[in-house]
Design a protein around this nucleic acid. Structure first.
Lengths: 188, 188
DNA sequence: CGCGTATCTATACGGAGTGTATAGCAAAGT
DNA sequence: ACTTTGCTATACACTCCGTATAGATACGCG
């Protein structure tokens, strides 16, 4: 029996999709990426396997969709921080610190996920994140009238990778230091 | 029939192990990490599944062993570069540049592998690499009489992660720039 | 040399997950 | 009311896993 039913059919599909991605999140939290299978997700989401296959063709796509939603939420949060810090000097610093804290607090979830997709093909949401940070870098360079050491896009990827090392940082207080270390290098 | 037979039994086991890891390498090159299964590896290595299970209990261990061998080879190469560059000023720079070039030339193989293991448990060979670079950082700081911005171990992880962005660098000429950007930040 | 031991092959079995297909029921759309 | 859409329940063939057994082959050592 269909558990979820909103009045409209489109809303229903949206709700099912959300429930499925929630189930993915739970399974990942329980047993890591390898603990995610179509069967288990279907059971956990309260739908049949056949139904799940109508939404997602395979586990890979499922994980990609979950990751997309995750990064999307973070991107919204980071954008909020950017606009809040727009007046107070350097938004780049604030955004990168917020990102590093996310990585520090959720070591496995977010930092490992990109690696999973990079093996298959490019990650759409991650490209957004890269573009977002590349823009911040450009703006920061223009404001401080300093010369960038490299292409902003490459620097953005550098920042993201460098800050992903926040995952294994000894203490939470070291996060601002790591951000400082990372940012210091981008100007010539 | 056993294909490989060296005169001694210990040598034989070593040869089989090598053949198995070679098969893993081939399969990874062909279809990525998800293309590695016990069945396929056994077929490719010219042994039975039952035999393979006597050497490696599961795919995870198989990939870990392959990665261990890979990183071990690179570590040997980097150590050679370190001793060669010991007299000529900064070995840190030389080693990091060599590492970044490895990442650039083999985008998927080495940079993605740590991420796979970090999801499960800690990577032994990678710890060696981290310690190796941490030592280099300490030595570099002592020679240049400068103060490090953070714990050397954390800085080593920062360097490794930052340089793993060499994977998606626009051009090979940008590799030295990335190394410069990365190293610039480690001093206060 | 010859026996014991270690190793590999070949094969089989139950379990889990995959991908697909079908029939039937329930709710939305018009 | 009638059609369309979506979900359930179930089934099938396939792959891979992990383990077990019997028998062949080559080493190790007395």
């Amino acid at each position: 029996m269909p558990k979820l039913w909103t009045d409209t059919v489109e809303g229903h599909r949206h709700a099912v999709r959300a429930a499925v991605l929630d189930a993915v999140a739970v399974l990942i939290a329980e047993a890591g990426f390898s603990g995610v299978s179509m069967t288990r997700v279907a059971d956990h989401a309260g739908v049949t396997r056949a139904t799940l296959y109508k939404y997602f063709p395979d586990v890979e796509t499922l994980l990609a969709a979950w990751h997309e939603r995750q990064v999307g939420e973070h991107l919204a949060g980071l954008d909020k921080i950017r606009s809040e810090a727009a007046g107070t000097g350097r938004p780049l610093q604030a955004v990168l610190e917020a990102y590093a804290l996310i990585v520090y607090d959720r070591p496995s979830h977010d930092a490992s996920a990109p690696a999973l997709h990079r093996a298959t093909h490019i990650d759409h949401a991650h490209q957004h994140l890269e573009a977002f940070i590349a823009d911040l870098i450009r703006a920061d360079a223009q404001e401080s009238a300093a010369d960038l050491a490299m292409d902003p896009a490459d620097l953005a990827r550098y920042c993201i990778e460098a800050l992903s090392s926040a995952r294994s940082l000894s203490s939470r207080d070291a996060v601002p230091c790591l951000v400082a270390v990372t940012v210091r290098g981008i100007y010539t």
